[in-house]
């Protein structure tokens, strides 16, 4: 055992510090003798394989053979060949994008229309004079003083409770009594 390694093990008070314990594995007879030749033959084989020409197909196919093949097969089967429609991936993507845009557009239109109705009802009520509303609530169905207001109120389907809520939110005239 190397003195340095032995001294180190002695400092560690290790039982390994005595004579070196050998390797128990059995070697293969003549294994090392043939090693360089063995490696050389592997390398030679690799180089031989590396030297092979690229896998090029030496055969040629008549021009248009594959394009015409389905039609010819169908013709031979006794049916007229149908001209197939080829959809490319790009066309498929464009079609999908158009569908998405259409759905988003319809959704936005419906939403805007619904929101618009709500705004217009509030706007109409804001334009009606309190006295006209009072008169309407007091005399349901009686003609309104302001023809334009009557036109508005007749046009919209508003319940009396909704009008009361509107006045709660926007303030009642102090003179108003029922």
């Amino acid at each position: 055992m190397n003195e340095e390694v032995k001294k180190e093990l002695e400092e560690l008070k290790s039982p390994l510090a005595g004579s070196k314990i050998g390797m128990p594995f059995g070697g293969q007879q003549d294994y090392f003798a043939g090693m360089p030749e063995k490696i050389a033959s592997i390398i030679a084989e690799e180089q031989t394989n590396a030297g092979l020409p690229m896998a090029v197909n030496p055969y040629v196919v008549p021009v248009g053979y594959f394009e015409e093949l389905p039609a010819r097969v169908l013709a031979n089967a006794g049916r007229p060949a149908r001209k197939g429609v080829t959809i490319t991936f790009r066309q498929l993507r464009l079609a999908a994008a158009a569908v998405v845009l259409l759905v988003v557009g319809v959704g936005a239109f419906v939403r805007t229309t619904q929101m618009g109705t709500g705004i217009s009802e509030n706007a109409i009520l804001a334009n009606v004079a309190d006295k006209d509303i009072r008169a309407y609530l007091g005399n349901a169905g009686a003609p309104l003083a302001d023809a334009s207001a009557g036109r508005y109120i007749d046009k919209i389907d508003v319940k009396a409770e909704d009008i009361e809520k509107y006045l709660d939110d926007n303030g009642w005239d102090t003179e108003m009594t029922f």
Partner: peptide, 30 residues
């Protein structure tokens, strides 16, 4: 090729045992 053969002969045993002690089985070390 001559130099390569000499280098293999010089280092093969040391490297073999270094590997064999780790993987245990001769075929794997090889």
């Amino acid at each position: 090729e001559v130099a390569f053969t000499r280098l293999v002969r010089k280092y093969q045993e040391r490297l073999y045992w270094h590997i064999r002690r780790m993987v245990v089985v001769h075929e794997d070390a090889d």
